[in-house]
Design a binder for these strands. Sequence first.
DNA 1: ACGCAGACTTGGAAAAATATTT
DNA 2: AAATATTTTTCCAAGTCTGCGT
Length: 700
Amino acid sequence: KQERGRMWETEDLNEHKDSEKKHKEKEKTKHKDGSSEKHKDKHKDRDKEKRKEEKVRASGDAKIKKEKENGFSSPPRIKDEPEDDGYFAPPKEDIKPLKRPREEDDADYKPKKIKTEDLKKEKKRKLEEEEVSKETVALGGLEERYPEGIKWKFLEHKGPVFAPPYEPLPENVKFYYDGKVMKLSPKAEEVATFFAKMLDHEYTTKEIFRKNFFKDWRKEMTNEEKNIITNLSKCDFTQMSQYFKAQSEARKQMSKEEKLKIKEENEKLLKEYGFCIMDNHRERIANFKIEPPGLFRGRGNHPKMGMLKRRIMPEDIIINCSKDAKVPSPPTGHKWKEVRHDNKVTWLVSWTENIQGSIKYIMLNPSSRIKGEKDWQKYETARRLKKCVDKIRNQYREDWKSKEMKVRQRAVALYFIDKLALRAGNEKEEGETADTVGCCSLRVEHINLHPELDGQEYVVEFDFLGKDSIRYYNKVPVEKRVFKNLQLFMENKQPEDDLFDRLNTGILNKHLQDLMEGLTAKVFRTYNASITLQQQLKELTAPDENIPAKILSYNRANRAVAILCNHQRAPPKTFEKSMMNLQSKIDAKKEQLADARRDLKSAKADAKVLKDAKTKKVVESKKKAVQRLEEQLMKLEVQATDREENKQIALGTSKLNYLDPRITVAWCKKWGVPIEKIYNKTQREKFAWAIDMADEDYEF
DNA sequence: ACGCAGACTTGGAAAAATATTT
DNA sequence: AAATATTTTTCCAAGTCTGCGT
């Protein structure tokens, strides 16, 4: 595939003059540093001109409108708020989706608070759907307290914490070039240490990584060094590497006091820089420490791996806070790049990173009001989808028959997104990132069609790298019409051509927006994940089982979602061993149990003969012992099962980002499972709104 | 419509903190 | 108390999607 880009490069350049053809092309030929220029579009469409598109617009259902208005809901109007409790949980009616806002209700927005609200909100929920279709609005006015897009009124913080300055290596730690000791200049040395620290990592064996590193490293060298050091393979970083290993070893061996001291320092830092004030609440900041310099590690086959991520200085930093707040002071002798007061965004600090040129931010912790509210809204949007998903499904099935190619492609893509929980698949700049795809960016080479496979008809075999270069491999029976459409889409195309050549995420999302306000491709993932959890919990929870078994059921339900979303992980390095340990524990327990049973039996025999109170008591206690052991054994077995099934599945992402926490809270309440068994402290903080809001009857 | 910057969510790995064994 | 195993937190890359300027 790498030749893919290169190969078409020239052709593309002079090729798209046909303006009309391609939709997607993105030919941006920007040569950044002159080196990389290969982006190119997939020269997909070369043949299909058609472009006839018409207006589709199903028109049918009326529609939602898209006016904009203040969609934001109710930021807690502070003052009146009784302290903590009501933080989120704006009454349902206020909620409304933010993005494509809606109108009316703003007026209403009343900060009534919380709990009591829940009930009402429940009802509202049902009502609410309907109105969506009203038209309207004007948007012009609405000066609300938090008019359109305003995220806060007051914001004050202490600015970021910078990475500690570079500490030169001790004299006795040598670097060798071509077998000879060489003293590096401080800058060159610093960059060398980045490489040395990664020596054990597979990265450093990769050609691209080495090449990128070496190129950037040379930029930091003095002329003299540059003249000498011309071949990375002749560089010997082993002393440096060993030194760092020793350091980390030493760190582990530190005395109690030393460790405590460090801990206290960290706490102090956290206390001072880890919080901000946003609208009368003290909120935890997620990442108040600036990323230290180092070597960029991309994931998968990233063309930029190994490049130097430069040190961020105050002069790179943009501070965002309210006008009436105290502006954080830059480190002495430095100044900020800029101080701005933009309350339409939620970040406190930003800077531009040098590898991709993208902006990085310091934002609030998930436990904050601003994040929690947004999260809650996300699930409300998914619940709205629940109400119209049948209709949408019927519609895309109809669209499989459309005369318009574009509509068919859209319908098939949406079917995949819905059925398989694929990501939208934005297009990416070639050469800037690893070659990964999502639904809309699938290429012909990523699927195989089998009219018949393993006794099933119309099977589509997917095999592609998705986000983070995680492989998606799946064989899925699809409806005949879908299958036929895919054949059609693939006609006359090369493997590297786009499967959906007349579709991209913009087109798809625009269409979704017409189907339901606030609907985008990713809402399907949220919806399908949450609804799956709910269904699976219902199906798997056995009322009579004990708590550990219930938790296993929960984990299995969670796992079903993770599998749906393709959340995979590398099996833990110690997996096999840990499995064996567990097994031997189980065996040991079994033996204990056998012994205990034997004891019990003989005690019973004794009792039969003697019949005195004392032996009876012995029997009782033996019985208890057996029971206890049985329980322990079962707990271990459950644990083993759980672990085994989880070998390559990562549950974290779905738990944190896709599953409506209220489903979990309700389940815990219903079955008497302590919430702590499912959510740890951090998770409970993040989901405080849900813990507070949902009762056992909650339904997604 | 497009191209792009910007803002914010989602993601697994690695590091750090804890818990459990030895 | 040291060694290990497990869980939690941190880290920061990689997506999605919006909105703006053209």
